[in-house]
């Protein structure tokens, strides 16, 4: 049964340049929950994130992605954004000549279909910049151009704060952030989540426990290996993984004969 208030990924198989990367992903992230997605390098996490957002290079071979019960795989990226999806990129893209503030004003109006006067928008933007501990001058700088690695990541969360999405995928937003910045970003996510009052779901892709420690509340941790979600458990799974590593997990999964996968959110 499709859940009307969740992002539901069912048997998703995806290829890039003819190579199959996702080999049947099952994952459910309900609104009002924060999930983590962990897994070794190259296991397909970013592939999943980009596919969810509709990157044209990723070819869906099979499966479904339902958002609020509707299959979104045929939609263009902008249509998905209008439906409330948001991806914080692992590698944010530099756009020369386009000022961040202007861009967000245009994007906000495009995404919500509402016109907002520049002045009012700018006042809101300044608040959000404060939330991310970013200097107001960023509004006038070209989108990501010349931003440091950490600034780019913060800027992704700034965009999320401004665009008010309903389902967020954060692809390794914590990598490249210094210790203070991780806390600032995590707190911002907590705050945006709390303010959404159950209207937003979050999927945090990460390798490290350090960001998850700050995330409140963290509902589930999912593990992806070789193009599948192989394990899904409570927040303490993140700690165990960090202690024991993926090798250990792999062995254990092999030992469990007949183990295939355990979709999250189904318990």
């Amino acid at each position: 049964m499709a859940q009307t208030d969740a992002l539901e990924i069912r048997g998703l198989r995806v290829a890039v340049d003819g190579k199959e990367i996702l080999k049947g992903v099952d994952l459910v992230v309900p609104k009002g929950e924060i999930h983590a997605l962990m897994g070794p390098n190259g296991s397909g996490k970013s592939t999943l994130a980009q596919t969810l957002m509709g990157h044209p290079r990723y070819e869906v071979l099979e499966g479904q992605v339902l958002w609020k019960g509707e299959n979104i795989l045929e939609l263009s990226p902008d249509e998905r954004a209008k439906k409330g999806l948001f991806l914080a990129f692992q590698y944010p893209v530099e756009i020369p000549g386009v000022a961040l503030g202007n861009f967000l004003h245009i994007a906000y109006q495009a995404r919500t279909g509402q016109e907002v006067p520049v002045g009012r928008f700018h006042r809101q933007l300044v608040q959000k910049l404060k939330l991310l501990d970013m200097d107001p001058s960023f509004a006038n700088r070209n989108l990501n151009e010349g931003f440091s690695g950490g600034e780019k990541k913060r800027c992704e969360i700034l965009q999320m704060a401004v665009l008010e999405p309903e389902m967020v995928v954060m692809d390794e937003t914590d990598s490249g952030l210094d210790i203070d910045a991780v806390r600032i970003v995590a707190n911002a996510v907590n705050r945006i989540f709390a303010e959404s009052q159950g209207k937003m779901g979050v999927l945090i892709i990460t390798h490290y426990q350090r960001i998850l420690r700050y995330i409140q509340p963290l509902h589930r941790v999912n593990v992806m290996m070789d193009g599948r979600v192989v394990l899904s458990d409570g927040p303490e799974l993140a700690e165990r993984l960090e202690e024991m590593g993926y090798d250990f997990l792999e062995k254990r999964l092999h030992e469990q004969a007949g183990f295939v996968k355990e979709p999250s959110g189904s318990d």
Partner: peptide, 26 residues
């Protein structure tokens, strides 16, 4: 490039609008 376009569209900008703001900026 495809990546810039995808990035801008992922924020809710239709293709034409994404192209336009890049051209404006240029």
């Amino acid at each position: 490039d495809e990546l810039q376009l995808f990035y801008l569209m992922s924020r809710g900008l239709p293709k034409r609008l994404a192209e336009k703001i890049v051209v404006d900026g240029f």
